[in-house]
Amino acid sequence: MHALTTVDFLVRLATGVACGALIGVERQWRARMAGLRTNALVATGATLFVLYSVAVDDTGSATRVASYVVSGVGFLGGGVILRNGGGVRGLNTAATLWCSAAVGVLAASGKLAFAVLGTLTILAVHLLLRPAGRLLDRAPAAGSDPDAPVRATLYLVCERREETHIRALLLQSLAVSGLTPTGLRAHRKDEETSSIQAAVEINGDVAPALEQVISRLSLEPGVQELHWHLDEEDAEREPVLA
């Protein structure tokens, strides 16, 4: 293996940073959690780690370092995955960070053309497969009625002294969102807290319909816990990953 020159180092590093930044531009444009700088930094770090192993001229070291980079980025990706109501957010962002690291490893290994091709492929997945995914989301499942209402339950825990106010606010927020509860139950858990459950039927997408209600109630200082879930009979018909 020939010695890594300063020019080679700079060319490979610049390619890794540029490819990561290009991926980040698309993410930033769509206002995702990990945007331009994050993807560029992930690609830069992956490139530098592998460049180090190349610079010390240790046979086989680059492969080992690349495997460590994959593991490390896995922890980083886990930090951007968030639970949001009945769904999960950040899966695409975590996968994109993982891909940015792979692009950096390719650039650091001297496979500059492969790094560019990898970057273009990642961008194509985001730009071309997004409309296809939305079409699949809208496609009704076999044997299901797309116009049938979806039943969901909104659950919250609040301070007992705020129960009356929170219950009234919940009903008001549902009315503002055009939702009518099919059932409402309040239960005093202990001397200081109460739980409230509201069952609703929704025509259309569940998450947008409940988003306004969740956002409004989450601002109340007396609310200690707040989430929603689909009823069991509708769980298979309605996707919960976003």
Rank of each mutant, 00 (worst) to 15 (best):
T15W: 00
D231M: 03
D234Y: 00
S109D: 06
L13H: 00
V65E: 01
V240F: 06
G60L: 14
A18P: 01
A43G: 05
S53H: 05
R237V: 07
E211K: 09
G90E: 09
A46N: 02
S195T: 15
T15C: 07
E191S: 14
S195L: 15
E233L: 03
T96Q: 09
S109I: 05
G45R: 00
D58E: 13
M1I: 07
T44H: 00
V88A: 06
Q212P: 09
Q224I: 15
A3W: 03
T180E: 12
V25H: 09
A101S: 13
E236N: 00
Q197N: 09
L154V: 15
T63I: 12
M33Q: 10
T38M: 10
A207P: 01
L217H: 07
R64L: 11
L97S: 05
V125E: 01
L174T: 05
A168F: 12
L136M: 12
R32E: 15
L171P: 00
L13S: 00
L4F: 04
Q28V: 11
V116S: 01
K111D: 06
V240D: 07
A102N: 04
R89N: 08
D190E: 11
R216W: 12
L170W: 06
L174P: 04
L117Y: 14
R37M: 10
D231C: 05
